[in-house]
């Protein structure tokens, strides 16, 4: 087992496009949960409508990529309204139930036979990144970066754009949360009745943040479509949402850079455990396990990570322990 190359590969994935896409989606979730306390268990649904917005516009209708982004974001906007209007006046649990169900229903609808003419059913959609690559300033044949962190021109272009979006969103979140608007949002997380008693329209604020976080999630979905050049409905299973939650809690909820650090740490650990399991397997040290079982072990590892995290470091990597301890209402 070559530990050095496993470490190198893990580091590579920590900076890779998937980490960036998950960071973006987790930023949306951070707006929902970290700052406002909204329990969104269906962030993957926003990613799905974003990705299919790009997919359907580009592959089916041959529209420019930017239009695809617009369609994806518009769908996310609608989805947020549909989820929020009936539930945001009710107790927090209702949003949780609704989002988890809606995300899964969306996936089932998009993969269903009757939707196939539009969504490609279980096969999904292909050839989605021509438009993106046509404006690639990097040379696809060239490799950029150093050592383990060298990427080919196409990947480099995705990386630059996605991490760029992550940076822009972090800036946006920072500005919002350091404004009076952000103060109301954090107040709602603490006690929405108190905020209402001070004359703030709590429902409107919750709706705004649900839409905003959903849009950021959809943007992550758009970038996923562009990066992979193809999408399948079964990429958008509920486990994606749970990965996002692990990322958020790992990095630190309610912190601007929490989701970013969380995503990098998460994908580092995922690849590291995968590498180690495979290494041990190839040395014949895991006689009871076949290749496919490694995935299951890895998921168990994610669960264990979450449990350990909540027990020993509930504030995440960069959370504020002092803030965390004050939890008595």
């Amino acid at each position: 087992m070559d530990l050095v190359s496993i470490l190198a590969e893990s580091t590579r994935s920590a900076f890779g496009p998937i980490a960036a896409i998950y960071a973006l989606a987790a930023i949306g979730l951070n707006l929902h949960f970290g700052y406002t306390g909204l329990l969104n268990f269906g962030q993957v649904g926003f990613m799905l409508v974003g990705a299919y917005g790009v997919g359907i516009s580009v592959e089916l209708f041959g529209l420019p990529l930017l239009v695809g982004f617009g369609v994806g974001l518009a769908c996310a906007f609608l989805l947020a309204l549909l989820l929020g209007i009936p539930t945001l006046r009710l107790r927090a649990d209702y949003l949780a139930i609704t989002t988890i169900a809606a995300a899964e229903v969306l996936r089932l609808v998009y993969r269903a036979g009757f939707a196939e003419p539009l969504t490609g059913g279980v096969y999904g959609l292909q050839n989605l990144s021509d438009g993106f690559r046509s404006i690639n300033p990097f040379d696809p044949g060239e490799r950029y970066g150093w050592g383990a962190l060298a990427y080919n021109g196409n990947h480099m272009w995705v990386l630059v754009v996605t991490w760029g979006l992550v940076a822009v969103m972090c800036g946006l979140v920072w500005m919002l949360m350091h404004s009076p608007w952000g103060r109301v949002i954090k107040g709602i997380r603490e006690d929405e009745e108190a905020v209402r008693s001070l004359g703030k329209n709590v429902f409107a604020y919750k709706m705004q943040i649900l839409v905003l976080g959903g849009l950021v999630g959809a943007l992550a979905g758009c970038m996923l479509a562009v990066y992979q050049a193809s999408i399948q409905p079964d990429q958008f299973k509920p486990q994606v949402t749970f990965f996002l939650w692990v990322i958020l809690l790992l990095g630190g909820a309610g912190r601007v850079f929490g989701p970013v650090l969380g995503a990098m740490a998460f994908w580092f650990l995922m690849n590291f455990t995968d590498g180690v399991l495979r290494g041990l397997g190839s040395m014949g040290l895991l006689p009871f396990l076949d290749g496919p079982d490694y995935g299951a072990i890895q998921l168990a590892f994610v669960g264990l990570l979450l449990v350990l995290l909540i027990v020993f470091r509930p504030q995440g990597l960069i959370g504020d322990r002092k803030e965390m301890l004050i939890n008595v209402k």
Binding site: P180, R183, V184, K186, G187, R189, E190, D191, E193, A194, V195, S197, L198, K200, E323, I326, N327, V328, K329
Partner: peptide, 18 residues
């Protein structure tokens, strides 16, 4: 409120400014 609703994880000043 009878059961006080302080916004616990915000500073006293932020509570006021709200």
């Amino acid at each position: 409120f009878q059961l006080t609703k302080a916004l616990t994880r915000m500073s006293v000043l932020d509570n006021m400014l709200l």
